[in-house]
Amino acid sequence: MADENWKPKIIAIICNWCSYAGADLAGGARIQYPPDIRAIRVMCTGRIDPLFILKAFQDGADGVLVSGCHFGDCHYLEGNFKAAKRMFLLKSVLKNIGLDDKRLRMTFVSASEGAKWGSVMEDVVKTINELGPSPLKEFAR
């Protein structure tokens, strides 16, 4: 890959009730994971407009993680389900524009799954490290 000093820029948009709480729990339990991801909190993954994610890629993000509640566990009944459908469609859009759809990931981490949050972080960073810098990076801004 291009730059040896390259560090992935990964953005996570996560729901307040499950994944954000799970991430907090990981902190309480002092579960250590790679520091390459920045989280933005929304109340529900249903809030996530696919354009937010396209904007992130346009801005040069190497990866985007969307994380919500497990199906059936959504604080707002079905927001996570709607988000999952949108992410599924968005992945095919990414493929069409020539971006590896592995750069977008949706996971389901509950408020009690601190350890799982840690392994999701590991896994996402590993995936993005393997993919290398986003080809859109040079067009950013």
Partner: peptide, 9 residues
């Protein structure tokens, strides 16, 4: 209830 699912759509 403020989930924002409408706003995301």
């Amino acid at each position: 209830k403020g989930c924002g699912t409408c706003g995301g759509f």
